[in-house]
């Protein structure tokens, strides 16, 4: 009997859990997870859990350099407005993390089990790929997945394999998000990866809604203080959430 796993299940039970995933790296998962959480946070208390043990980009996007406090209830979140943020990075600080594969699941279970999670809405950022995070999430909850890709053919092909797995495992894929599709200019939109036809086709084939997000060059200025960002990307994500 694994009590920490049971505790993780208990803590997530009955909650809305949204997991932002992609088989591909660098496509905007952490950014999108953070902006989804910030949008929710404008209306209700929301948790943002960073399952990217090695990258912990969420902490970097929010400019958090502290360590988690620990209470009788477990790991206390970092609070940013209405958001409660949890990350393994908040346990180790700036020390590197190296883990044999089979320990990864234990680390993720511990974070999810020990997090003092009070919020009804939980947004989860995951690292690229289909590793232990995916398995752990499936063990502890029944997340709704937001699958992120670039509109490029390569990215869509890689993500398609993940989608096959997700659908076969009966996970609910809420949307496919094609990130960095277009850049607005005074001369009209530019499509840096060409028109997003591959992802559109994938969505039609699988019957999943595809959402198209722009490139926002201003985003970069908000790295470390993403809560302050209210630009185009956040607005577009809000529209998706409102649908």
């Amino acid at each position: 009997m694994n009590p920490i796993l049971e505790l993780a299940r208990e803590r997530l039970k009955g909650k809305r859990v949204l997991a932002v995933m992609s088989a591909k790296g660098g496509v905007g998962k952490s950014t999108i997870a953070s902006l989804i959480a910030l949008n929710f946070g404008e209306r209700q208390k929301t948790a943002l859990i960073d399952l990217d043990i090695y990258g912990n980009s969420v902490l970097k996007l929010f400019g958090i350099q502290k360590l988690h406090e620990v209470s009788k209830e477990g790991i206390e979140p970092f609070r940013v407005g209405n958001l409660s943020i949890f990350s393994v990075g908040g346990l180790v600080g700036d020390h590197y993390i190296v883990l044999p594969g089979k320990e990864e699941g234990n680390v993720l279970e511990s974070l999810l089990g020990l997090a003092n999670l009070r919020e009804e809405t939980v947004v989860i950022d995951t690292p690229p790929g289909m590793g232990e995070e995916l398995l752990t999430l499936k063990r502890v909850a029944n997340p709704e997945v937001i699958l992120v890709t670039l509109p490029s053919k390569l990215s869509v092909m890689v993500v398609e394999q993940m989608l096959e797995y997700l659908l076969e495992s009966k996970l609910k894929v809420e949307w496919i998000v094609a990130n960095m599709c277009y850049l607005n200019t005074p001369f009209g939109p530019i499509y840096p990866f060409g028109k997003p036809e591959f992802v559109e086709k994938l969505g039609v084939e699988k019957g999943i809604k595809v959402e198209y997000l722009p490139v926002d060059p201003e985003l970069e200025d908000f790295s470390g203080r993403i809560w302050d960002y209210s630009g185009l990307l956040k607005e577009e994500i809000r529209k998706i959430l409102d649908e």
């Binding site: 360590l67 406090e69 620990v70 790991i75 393994v88 346990l91 180790v92 600080g93 020390h95 590197y96 993390i97 190296v98 883990l99 044999p100 320990e103 234990n106 680390v107 511990s110 974070l111 020990l114």
Partner: peptide, 16 residues
Amino acid sequence: YGEENPLHIVPSLITA
């Protein structure tokens, strides 16, 4: 890290 160190909370982190 003191008492609330990473290994106390998540012993699996030992290899780090």
